[in-house]
């Protein structure tokens, strides 16, 4: 019995009202997330190109939901349960022990995607079933960079687990290497990166933890009319301009990341959604390093990071 059959069986046994799972996109080899009713369970599919995180979708669905979750997705679900945004009893989680996902952009450089019919992982190779024949690519060359540092490949919370549990690791070597650069080099690097940011806010829209109904950068914060009293104006603090330039973008990204301190689950959706391919995960991982090394906090703790009242340093 292969992986997909096992997932289908587990979903059938869940008696949930809705199913959130990956469905093969037409004319493209990748999967997208869909909300299905229980009798549509045969549509589902799963492959190393099932990239997205279903946690954000779950917040919009009422009633009992069955969901297919990889390691990082289950981290996000658990974090949202911790923060009171989801209810555990409403969820049936089919956890998948994840071997890593493919970076769609890297794969597109290897092969014309419209010719690919099927993708599967075989040992250390990614096997692409093309219209005419087969192509093998070493998995390490197309794997999402984020998956190389994955700390939780096995779901941390699940009802049914599919696949063998896998060990995660904690590796901050790339951050440490970057920290060894001089201050000017670091500043120039980040300014050259943030210069390219177009402030589309896709990183915010796609992040499972950015669920605020009104974000600090939303224009509704600035709804000021000629009739507004000074008191009303004062209650609309303008934290950040809408201008797109390297420095405002720097501030936007620093603030965005600060809101994820001790919460970021490391699914890498921000980087995947970014049209300019900015290294956003690097900032998140730096904060994770601070949270782990300076504050001694572990993401697996039941208490949220900011609620822990211990004082560090002098």
């Amino acid at each position: 019995m292969n992986e997909i059959e096992k997932i289908k069986d587990a979903l059938k046994s869940s008696n949930a009202e809705k199913i959130v799972a990956f469905v093969r996109k037409e004319s493209e080899p990748r999967e997208v997330l869909k909300v299905l009713s229980p009798n549509e369970v045969d549509k589902i599919s799963f492959s190393p190109l099932s990239l997205n995180n279903p946690a954000k979708l779950l917040m919009q669905i009422n009633g009992k939901v069955a969901v297919v979750a990889k390691g990082c997705d289950s981290m996000a679900i658990r974090q949202l349960i911790k923060e009171g945004k989801l209810k555990r009893e409403n969820l049936f989680i089919v956890g998948i022990s994840c071997k890593g996902v493919v970076d769609y952009r890297k794969l597109a450089k290897f092969v014309n995607l419209s010719e690919v019919n099927d993708v599967e992982l075989n040992g250390n190779d990614l096997v692409l079933k093309l219209k005419n024949g087969e192509k093998r690519i070493p998995f390490l060359e197309v794997v999402d960079e984020n998956c190389l540092y994955c700390g939780h490949p096995t779901p941390v919370i699940y009802d049914v687990l599919i696949g063998e549990p896998r060990e995660g690791k904690r590796d901050f070597s790339d951050i440490e290497q970057f920290e060894r650069l001089s201050r000017e080099e670091r500043w120039n690097y980040w300014i050259s990166q943030f210069e390219r940011c177009i402030r589309c806010h896709a990183c915010r829209s796609v992040c499972p933890l950015c669920y605020c109904e009104e974000c600090m950068v939303d224009p509704s914060n600035l709804a000021v009319s000629p009739m507004s009293t000074p008191e009303e104006k004062a209650s609309y603090p303008r934290i950040l301009g809408k201008t797109v330039n390297a420095r405002d973008n720097t501030i936007y990204h620093l603030l965005r990341v600060l809101h994820h301190a001790g919460r970021c689950v490391g699914c890498g959706e921000c980087e995947r959604a970014c049209p300019m391919e900015l290294p956003l995960r690097m900032l998140e991982r730096k904060l994770e390093k601070v949270v782990v090394e300076i504050f001694g906090y572990d993401l697996n703790e039941d208490i949220p990071f900011f609620s822990k009242l211990d004082i560090v340093g002098d």
Binding site: L254, L258, K286, F306
Partner: peptide, 16 residues
Amino acid sequence: KKRYLLLKELMKFVGF
């Protein structure tokens, strides 16, 4: 203190 430390470390990281 928490906010200060996080912001400071992040500023150091981006080279501010």
